[in-house]
C-alpha cells in the first residue's frame, strides 16, 4: 500500500468505519426514542438523557462520517469547528437564560402586586378580541362618591355603563391609582355631572377602576371569557 492510500484511509474512512458509525447512530436514535415513548424515565432526567444521546450521536457522525480532526496539521477545520461550537453555546444558553429570567421576573412582579393589594388590575384571562355585537348591558351608578354595585360580573362582549349622579365631574381611570392601565383601548373616561358613558367589555379578566381625583371612589368588574 502506498503512503497516499494510507493517508486517504486515515482522512476519509473505510467501509468498516462507516458501518460502525451507522450502527452506533441507529442505536443512539432508537434508545432515546424508546425512553420517550415507553416513559421509562420522565422529567429532567429524561430531558438530560435524550440530549446526551443527541450529543453522542453528533460526535459519532463527526468522527465516522465527517472525519473531523483527521486532517493534516494545522487543524484549520477543527479550529473553526471549535470556534463555532463556542458561538453556538453562547447563543443557545444565552437565549434560554435571558428568556427564563425575564419570564420569572415578570411572574414575580405580577404576584407581588397582587400580594401588596395594589388592587387588581388584571388577573388571568388575557383573551382579547373585537366584539362583533354588543350583548347584555351592566350599569354602575356613582352617587355621593360611592360605587354601586361594587363588583360587576359580566361576560366578554357585554357592555358596561358608568353613570355619574354626583354634582361634579369624574375622571374614571383603570388600574390602581397612579399606575393607570388602559382597558379596551380607553385610558380614562370623563363623566360630566349627571352623565354616563358606555364601554364594550372586550378584554376578559378582573379589572379595577377608580375616580382619578377621588381614589376612594372605586369598583371592580370581572369579565368572564366566552
Amino acid at each position: 500500500m502506498s503512503s497516499t492510500e494510507q493517508t486517504t484511509k486515515r482522512e476519509h474512512g473505510t467501509t468498516a468505519s462507516y458501518i460502525a458509525g451507522f450502527v452506533l447512530s441507529v442505536a443512539f436514535t432508537i434508545i432515546p426514542y424508546y425512553l420517550v415513548t415507553r416513559h421509562v424515565v420522565s422529567g429532567l432526567p429524561l430531558l438530560a438523557t435524550i440530549l446526551g444521546f443527541a450529543v453522542l450521536q453528533m460526535i459519532v457522525q463527526i468522527v465516522f462520517f465527517l472525519h473531523l480532526g483527521r486532517e493534516k496539521s494545522p487543524h484549520w477545520q477543527l479550529s473553526f469547528f471549535v470556534a463555532t461550537a463556542g458561538i453556538i453555546f453562547v447563543v443557545v444558553a444565552g437565549s434560554l437564560w435571558i428568556m427564563h429570567n425575564l419570564h420569572a421576573n415578570m411572574a414575580a412582579e405580577a404576584s407581588k402586586k397582587l400580594v401588596n393589594g395594589e388592587a387588581i388590575y388584571q388577573i388571568g384571562g388575557e383573551k382579547t378580541g373585537a366584539c362583533q355585537e354588543a350583548r347584555a348591558n351592566h350599569q354602575v351608578i356613582i352617587r355621593d362618591g360611592s360605587v354601586s354595585p361594587l363588583h360587576i360580573e359580566a361576560q366578554l362582549c357585554d357592555t358596561l355603563t358608568l353613570i355619574n349622579e354626583d354634582d361634579m365631574a369624574r375622571v374614571i381611570a383603570f388600574g390602581p391609582h397612579d399606575h393607570h392601565a388602559t382597558y379596551a383601548g380607553e385610558a380614562e373616561l370623563v363623566l360630566g355631572k349627571g352623565r354616563g358613558k358606555t364601554i364594550t367589555l372586550s378584554e376578559s379578566g378582573t379589572y379595577r377602576f377608580h375616580d382619578h381625583l377621588h381614589e376612594q371612589t372605586a369598583g371592580i368588574f370581572t369579565v368572564a371569557p366566552q
Partner: peptide, 9 residues
C-alpha cells in the same frame, strides 16, 4: 443529518 438529529431530539 447531524442537524436533523437535533431536530428529532
Amino acid at each position: 443529518d447531524i442537524v436533523w438529529i437535533f431536530i428529532f431530539t
